[in-house]
Amino acid sequence: MSARSFTDRDIHLALDGELPEDERAAYQIWLEANPDMKARSLRYAADNAALRNLFAGVLEEPVPARLVTAVNGEGPRRKQATPWWRMVAAASLLIAGGLGGYLAGMSGLGMGGDSDDRMAQLAIAAHQTFASDKNRPVEVDGSDQAYLTGWLSKRTGLTLVAPDLSKDGFTLLGGRLVPADGATAALMLYADADGNRISVYVVAEGTERSKGTFTLASGGPEAVYWQDEGYGCAIVGTLPPEQMGTVARNAYKQLIAGAART
């Protein structure tokens, strides 16, 4: 047979079963004669096997009911909110603030955004009113944290802690109560050394599990929020998206851990 010359491309063809039958013998000879190529072939084969093994278990998993329902068309459908907020959340954690309009536009499409959007709007409104107040942003300052959180907990009906965000460069200025559509929300304000301020807004409200980010159509600060039954929280600020995401997650984890302690 004609001894065509092989290249590293053929390694992939051979591995994927795409090398014509009548070329395989010649390929093997070529491989044996080229230790570099042989090593590469073995390595690719090992990586391939690892990939396959890694995901093999997925085939054995029980199929989630919502997927069966999607085909058979009975029962409750998943909330529309899920896919888009995941996208928006991921995206806005990672890009600069200029997209406010776009993000708000997305949530304005009527896909799911109800109580969570409303909560985010209230949190942003509170942040805009109070965080920009240079002299008196808070009612109770952060020097006595036990008093502050005790007061906020009592008034909101939640077990609140003031998250320690010093790792992210933010110190607690203090907190205040803000009205929240008939409920009372706690607003805790933080500042970093450059004077950037962020708010942690918590309210005992929420009817569904959701999370995402929200920015008003007119731009301005961004809210990263989580909502669960009877609990909602939003971290609001104007930080680079990645930093915003980190700070928000850090705050959220501490709030949840604090609430779980009781």
Binding site: M87, A90, A91, L94, V224, W226, R249, I256
Partner: peptide, 13 residues
């Protein structure tokens, strides 16, 4: 389009 090709799980837990 917004700079990153990854879907991040937001919540660590």
């Amino acid at each position: 389009r917004r700079g990153e090709a990854a879907i991040l799980p937001l919540e660590a837990s």
